[in-house]
């Protein structure tokens, strides 16, 4: 496994929310890999393995180009296999067994908004309207939140479940996906389909972005951002310069995640309140604009500034 290449430079610590919280090298890719190089048992690194948010910032920093998040996912699978975190594994497996719809979505463009955005119907209607300008975009019946969770945790997804999720998406030419991990997996599973990050796509619409001001803090969804870093960094940098808004990019130009949603909800390790405070630190802003619904929920908990989903920069869906 690629962890043998780690030479302990500490660069991966610089953007790592897990290290930031713990201030303990054990809770970092460096700590995990160095421990493995010195014969650590999986049980000894399990706390760190399951604290990682899989935000992907470290993948971009490692000079040895170690696939850090890929390695952590593999190690999580191995930890489950060796009997670690039985209850957590069971819980995720039970979610994967829930009944699903196999209705085929007859559309060229499908949106997979995820449960959190789905629970905001007015916002979701605007998202759908915004992404329907070229071709009508329909909402997927199945958000695949359980699949995203299983991907994050490293729990095996049965062929049946994967099939039931993918089947309705097969005919689509374009998919807008909210969850960065799901997006990454779908790129493997549906290589012929154009797969777009939902938040990134919204952030490219000038009718929304021109409403951003220098009093706004714009929260970029971390996983999708890091996944396509070369492309996304240029885009968000332009956005920042054009609109003067603040962003959650750190000095390394990595996106600071809120730690909201996914595995951290089911098995909380990273304090999303503290993450939110760190994101806000030093920024005196009037509004917080998010492109990911879970990030919005986390930032709203701080009770500071009003929090808006980017689609809500438009007042009505029929303004499109």
């Amino acid at each position: 496994m690629s962890h043998t290449k780690c030479h302990g430079c500490s660069l991966c610590l610089l953007s790592c929310p897990m290290w930031r919280q713990e201030r303990d090298v054990q809770y970092s890719p460096q700590g995990i890999f160095k421990a493995l190089q010195h014969n650590a048992a999986l049980s000894e690194i399990t706390p760190a393995l399951f604290s990682c948010l899989l935000c992907g910032a470290c993948d971009l920093l490692c000079p040895e180009q170690i696939d850090i998040t890929g390695t952590i996912k593999t190690l999580r699978r191995a930890a489950f296999s060796s009997g670690e975190h039985r209850a957590l594994k069971k819980e995720i497996e039970s979610q994967l067994k829930r009944p699903t719809t196999e209705a085929k979505a007859e559309a060229n463009t499908i949106i997979i908004p995820g449960g959190a955005l789905r629970s905001m119907p007015a916002t979701l209607t605007k998202v759908q309207a915004l992404l329907s300008r070229e071709a009508r975009a329909v909402l997927a019946k199945d958000d695949g939140d359980d699949i995203a969770l299983a991907l994050e945790a490293g729990v095996e997804i049965s062929e049946h479940r994967r099939h039931s999720f993918l089947e309705p998406l097969q005919g689509a030419k374009r998919l807008y996906v909210s969850n960065g991990l799901l997006l990454q997996a779908l790129r493997k599973w549906l290589p012929a389909t154009a797969l777009c990050a939902l938040g990134y796509s919204l952030s490219q619409l000038s009718e929304l972005t021109t409403k951003l001001t220098s009093d706004d803090l714009y929260l970029i969804e971390a996983r999708a951002f890091h996944l396509d870093h070369q492309q996304t960094i240029t885009h968000y940098d332009q956005l920042r310069h054009q609109q003067g808004c603040r962003t959650n990019l750190d000095l390394q130009r990595n996106a600071i995640p809120t730690a909201a949603g996914g595995l951290n909800t089911l098995h909380p390790t990273i304090d999303s309140h503290a993450q939110g405070r760190w994101i806000l630190n030093g920024h005196r802003v009037a509004r917080i604009i998010v492109e990911c619904a879970e990030d919005g929920q986390a930032m709203a908990q701080l009770n500071e500034q009003p929090v808006l989903h980017i689609a809500d920069l438009m007042e009505h869906a029929n303004d499109v």
Partner: peptide, 10 residues
């Protein structure tokens, strides 16, 4: 433990 001390080996 060895995996703790080994992190600082060089």
């Amino acid at each position: 433990a060895q995996h703790n001390t080994g992190t600082y080996v060089t």
